[in-house]
Amino acid sequence: MRNEMTLERLREIVEAYGASPARWPQGERSMAEALASSSPEAQSLVAEAARFDALLDMAPAEEPSAALTERLMAARPRAVAPLVPARPQKEKGFLRGLLETVWPYGSAAFPAGTLAAALVMGVALGSASDISLSLTGTAVTASTETETGEGLIALAMADQVWPEEWMQ
């Protein structure tokens, strides 16, 4: 920033920025304005620049067309409604807190249901194999050997008679 304003510097300012002090460099504005108001030569410089500014201001510029405004409004961002409305958080009970500690991946209904289904399937399978084995003499021995590989093979062979039974 300069500490003084000379006529030469004011000429440079006016020749670059024009006559309006609002466009002059902020740091020099007040000194330049002071000189412009006190010196007749400076006033002449500014008046000459003002005439040229008036000529430049004649360069045409129209208002935006209605079509442009409509196109932009049509393309504006839209508020997106959430697909699932947010539910307020409920107070967690002790049991729910415990469940969330064991299963922190959302609802515990899925693993609980899977566990229950596995239990039911296990019980059903156990009782069904008892019935089938008792009905097929060839595989009776399998009931006492269920822990062995032979037992599993016998169980698989016994499977073959089930459809016929179901058909009866």
Partner: peptide
């Protein structure tokens, strides 16, 4: 956030 009035106000202020 999709505010229509804000879009219009911003255009009124700067588009010209």
């Amino acid at each position: 956030s999709g505010d229509e009035a804000a879009c219009r106000a911003l255009m009124d202020r700067h588009l010209t």
